[in-house]
Simulated scan of single mutants.
Amino acid sequence: MAGDAEPGPSIRIAQDQRADEVLSQDPFALLVGMLLDQQFPMERAFAAPATVLERFGTLDPAAVAAADPEEFARLCSVPPAIHRFPGSMAGRIQDVARIVVERYDGDAARIWTGAADGADLLRRLQALPGFGRQKAQIFTALVAKQLGVTPDGWQQAAGDYALTGFRSVADVVDPDSLQQVRAHKQQLKRAAKAATADG
């Protein structure tokens, strides 16, 4: 590979060079990071694909889908585990891998690069196990803001996550933005708790 080749998009969500390289180079890794980003620190969720790669030897969706479920869950559970619920998340990773193989010929990037428009991208993402509407909106914003994938209507599909600011993992590009997104999430949690108490 030529030393002066154009570098690919540089994702810096995990705040770890090796983990962020994996996210930048492997679309399936980025998808898995987003899948794991719930009830778990953002940067650890997005560092997990590199851990799976290290332990399993590949992130090829076909290989992940075909892995023995018990063995795959075991390697995801070895400390440091890939998630606070490593067993169930290992199953979800395999489920997502199967869909990537069956519907997108094993190329996760086709989920977003092949979308007709923002609404289609949102539908494609919501069809994945573990991707509710909010997660699909955040990932739509992430591929737009950090990978430059901006199908028509992506802003409407992503909703408020399309806006400029520090609203979600889509806006994390360095340690400072990570802290600002975390502060925003904590503020929302406090507001939700206060609203429940008032109700």
Rank of each mutant, 00 (worst) to 15 (best):
M1L: 06
A2F: 04
G8F: 10
A14K: 07
Q15D: 11
D16R: 14
A19F: 03
D20A: 08
S24T: 05
D26V: 03
A29I: 03
L31R: 05
G33Y: 05
D37A: 14
F40P: 00
M42I: 12
F46V: 00
P49V: 01
A50N: 00
T51Y: 01
E54K: 03
R55H: 02
F56P: 02
F56M: 02
L59Y: 10
D60V: 04
P61T: 09
A63Q: 12
A65I: 14
A67D: 03
D68P: 11
E70L: 15
F72I: 08
A73E: 15
R74M: 05
R74V: 00
L75V: 01
C76E: 08
C76N: 09
S77A: 14
A81Y: 01
A81T: 01
I82D: 04
S88V: 02
M89Q: 07
R92C: 07
R92Y: 12
Q94W: 14
Q94F: 13
D95I: 00
E102D: 15
E102K: 12
E102I: 02
R103N: 10
R103F: 04
D117T: 09
R124F: 15
A127L: 04
L128S: 13
G130K: 06
F131L: 10
F131Y: 11
R133N: 13
Q134H: 15
Q137D: 13
F139Y: 12
F139K: 10
A141C: 06
L142D: 00
L142I: 08
K145H: 09
K145L: 08
G148L: 09
T150H: 00
T150C: 07
G153Q: 07
W154F: 07
D160M: 09
D160L: 05
A162T: 13
A162V: 10
L163A: 15
F166A: 10
R167H: 15
S168N: 04
A170G: 06
D174E: 11
L178M: 08
Q179S: 13
Q179A: 15
V181F: 04
R190C: 02
R190F: 06
A192Q: 14
A192H: 07
K193N: 09
K193E: 14
A197M: 09
